[in-house]
């Protein structure tokens, strides 16, 4: 019988509390289906997104992973032919409920795209735009604070602080992507969706964004779609594998990349597909 020292007891309690916070389901997909016109893109996907964790969605092109991601902040609403079935909740609230304000939802569930897409405005304005239209700042001083904090959290402040009035499009590709992340953070979201955020970046910029994802996890819940298996293995805690519109397998990332259960996952991550 081991006698627990006070310290090891503290450690155990802390570990348990962390474990519990990671157990909280931030978003839940329940039998999610998506049709684009006649074509069905998703077939009854059940997937939980845990709080303060990075969930990676992987799978070959056309498997439905981006489609699922776009359901999480109703980006599919912008496509006329798309229809979404099943249920998606954010903190147990149905996000497709008619009472939900989509603009507010997208502030809570932010998105970063594959290609950096800064507005054709200054660096400052790129970050300030969201908080301003959502009324998050009372005055200019407030807004300045939000812009600085967001740029700091996106690890761009040091590079951008002396050129806040220069156009965002003048930054390098990696900086632009971090600007887009700062823009997403500025409206104080709870969940950040990332659709292949590094596919247009060089390895150094990619490393910076990956480092950033790791830091952001403390305050946000992140869902990331990526084609890079190594990236999914590096940045995520849980991985979900999609194939032909179905969720094949979901589990702890460590297990998914060393000993997945499903043969399709195995074939995909080891490069044996098709």
């Amino acid at each position: 019988m081991n006698i627990m020292t006070e310290k090891s007891l503290d450690d155990a309690v802390n570990a348990e509390m962390n474990a519990r916070s990671n157990e909280i389901i931030k978003m839940r997909g329940d039998k999610v289906t998506v049709h684009y016109g006649d074509k069905q893109a998703l077939f009854g996907v059940d997937l939980d997104v845990r709080q303060n964790q990075v969930t990676a969605l992987i799978g070959p092109s056309g498997c439905g992973k981006s489609t699922f991601l776009r359901c999480l902040n109703r980006m599919n609403d912008t496509i006329d032919s798309a229809s979404v079935g099943g249920k998606i909740t954010l903190d147990n609230e149905d996000i497709y409920d008619p009472k939900i304000d989509v603009v507010e939802l997208r502030a809570r569930v932010g998105m970063v795209f594959q290609k950096p897409n800064p507005f054709p405005k200054s660096i400052y304005e790129n970050v300030a735009y969201g908080p301003r239209i959502h009324g998050l700042a009372k005055n200019k001083a407030d807004l300045d604070v939000i812009v600085e904090k967001s740029l700091q959290k996106a690890a761009l402040w040091n590079e951008a602080k002396d050129r806040l009035n220069e156009p965002g499009t003048g930054l390098s590709g990696g900086q632009q992507q971090r600007l887009c992340i700062a823009r997403a953070i500025a409206v104080a979201p709870e969940v950040i969706l990332m659709d292949e955020p590094c596919s247009a970046l060089d390895p150094i910029a990619t490393a910076k964004v990956e480092e950033l994802i790791d830091e952001l996890r403390e305050n946000y819940t992140i869902v990331i779609v990526t084609h890079s298996m190594q990236q999914a293995a590096r940045v995520s805690q849980r991985t979900a594998m999609f194939h032909l519109g179905y969720l094949v397998e979901e589990g702890p990332t460590d297990k998914m990349f060393t000993n997945p259960d499903d043969k399709r996952t195995q074939d995909y991550i080891t490069g044996r597909f098709g």
Binding site: M229, F257, N259, P260, Q266, T270
Partner: peptide
């Protein structure tokens, strides 16, 4: 060269 995964890595 290959960054093997799953059974290949093992």
């Amino acid at each position: 060269k290959r960054q093997p995964m799953a059974q290949d890595l093992r």
